[in-house]
Amino acid sequence: MVPPVSATGTDPTPTLADVLRPGTPKLVVDDVTKVFAGRKQTTTALEHVDLHVDQGELVCLLGASGCGKSTLLSIVAGLETATEGMVTVDGDRVVGPGADRGMVFQAYSLFPWKSVARNIAFGLETAGWPKARRQERVDELLGIMGLTTFADALPKELSGGMRQRVAIARALAPEPDMLLLDEPFGALDAETKRHMQDFLLSLWHRTGTTILMVTHDIEEAIYLSQRIYVLAARPGRVAAEIAIPFGGARGPNTKRDPRFLDLRDELADLLAT
């Protein structure tokens, strides 16, 4: 057992990001190991993973397929349990899934029989919000997401990008402490993906939500994050922690910034090893 994490964080070796942007660790992944015991062999999906996400931060977990990044996100969500180690949010130990950690999946997670508005309202009904407040919150999110005219549409009537906006709105509705995104734009075409990245950034600026996002897309990770954890595979472990120097300002020119290009090469090398 590890002592509870204090509000200010007591990491003995402050990372670069801590120095640049001292914050409160919202989420702490403490020495997490995940072993899948199969019949013939056991696979170590994650080995001694330590990381944290500060209040209001946007952090990406970057890694090639099979590095255990989605497993790690599932453990943070409480959908899987760590074999060793633990995850805490605001010092509370995560023992299972909850609406405080809203999650967005790559695809197929919207309720196909519910309208856009009813999809967004699902978490609010679960939390027992009174009907008037529920309606207010759904309307607010429909506005933020640019989906007001599609309130009564079924998911199958929407484009891929719109569906992911509904999924994000649904996860945001019950006002979670943080948002977990599991390759949310992985199934979208390049153009839609770019739009959704900018949309996510503006949403993040607007709501100040803490975001932990899994991706295998290097440029996406640099463009969106304040920090990146690079995961190496077999066994999954943190290979590097990289602070992104652009602050909050991102735009079309970010991707032409020489620092962006340097980071891209550096991360490509890290992923290749």
């Binding site: 699902f122 978490g123 649904r170």
Partner: peptide
């Protein structure tokens, strides 16, 4: 899983 993370 999405339903679980929505508190259900």
């Amino acid at each position: 899983n999405a339903s679980y993370t929505l508190g259900a």
